[in-house]
């Protein structure tokens, strides 16, 4: 059928068509303000961060310890309510050197987002799950020196400046 059709619909425009006013368009900015309550599991997590502790949660049924905390175990669907501290050290499971910001601005010094497998959470299991894996950024490191497997530790904000947020950890640095 594609072989029989010669003209497909769809008219391609360029940025120039907008700049030169060749087409009509409407520009608008949506305003949307939200206040998200943290809930129970993440609420405990954030309260822990404010104290300088990374909390996981343990399932009393299958005994897994996962980070971030949640109120139900995804594996056995039992409640999870036993909050346990894990370490603020871990291993770089994977990372990127990112030269583009979230809104697509170019930067010369890359951001280094990483998945960090925290010590003290359940280890990689036959379910191929890194139960202590969290996303954060790496710092105090030459970007090209970062490797998967690098040992890292959290660098915390001074206690007086912590507010109960993931950003209470500034970044993770190699140890």
């Amino acid at each position: 059928m594609t072989a029989r059709i010669k003209n497909f619909p769809g008219v391609s425009l360029s940025e120039k068509d907008f700049e030169e006013g060749k087409i009509l368009f409407v520009h608008d900015e949506l305003k949307a303000d939200y206040a998200w309550d943290t809930g129970i599991g993440i609420g405990a997590y954030l309260a822990g961060l404010k104290r300088g502790v990374i909390l996981g949660v343990r399932c009393g049924h299958c005994r897994k310890i996962v980070v971030p905390p949640r109120t139900v175990c995804e594996w056995c669907f039992h409640p999870m309510d036993e909050y346990v501290p894990v370490k603020d050290t871990g291993m770089v499971n994977t990372f990127s050197l990112c030269y583009v910001t979230w809104d697509v601005k170019r930067i010369t010094e890359p951001e280094i987002p990483a998945v960090i497998a925290l010590d003290g959470a359940s280890a990689l299991s036959e379910t191929s799950v890194i139960m202590g894996g969290i996303m954060h950024k790496l710092g105090e490191v030459e970007p090209k020196q970062v490797k998967i497997g690098t040992r890292v530790q959290a660098v915390w904000k001074p206690e007086s400046e912590r507010e109960g947020a993931i950003t209470d950890i500034l970044y993770f640095k190699p140890i």
Binding site: T38, I42, C98, T101, W102, P113, M135, K137, I166, T167
Partner: peptide, 14 residues
């Protein structure tokens, strides 16, 4: 996630 990830200003490419 708005609480645990978005404050890090993630990029889909990450």
């Amino acid at each position: 996630d708005h609480t645990t990830e978005r404050p890090l200003k993630p990029n889909l490419l990450w």
